Computed example of a mutant assay.
Amino acid sequence: MLGDLDHETRKQMVRAVAAYRDRWGFTSTSALGQVPADDAQRLDYERTRAALARLNQVAGDQVREVAQRRNERRL
Rank of each mutant, 00 (worst) to 15 (best):
Y45D: 04
R15C: 01
R73L: 13
D4M: 08
L52S: 12
A19N: 03
D38W: 00
E8K: 15
A53L: 03
Q34I: 01
E8D: 05
L5V: 00
T29A: 07
Q12W: 05
L52A: 11
R69F: 07
A31S: 14
A67F: 03
R23V: 04
R15M: 07
R69Q: 12
L43M: 08
G3T: 09
L32N: 10
L32I: 06
L5I: 03
R42T: 02
V17M: 02
A31H: 06
L5S: 00
G33E: 04
T27I: 09
R15Y: 09
A59Y: 03
V63C: 05
V58R: 12
A67D: 11
A50T: 14
N56R: 14
R70Q: 09
A16T: 02
R73C: 04
Q12R: 14
Q34M: 02
F26C: 04
V58G: 05
A37S: 13
R21Y: 05
L52F: 09
L5P: 00
E46W: 10
R54Q: 12
A37W: 05
E8A: 10
A50R: 12
L43A: 15
A59M: 03
R21S: 09
G60K: 09
T9R: 15
M1S: 08
E8L: 13
N56F: 12
Q12D: 11
N71S: 11
D61E: 15
Y45A: 05
A50G: 14
L75H: 10
P36T: 02
R73T: 06
A50E: 15
T48A: 04
A67C: 05
G60A: 11
Y20T: 02
A50F: 10
G3L: 12
L5F: 07
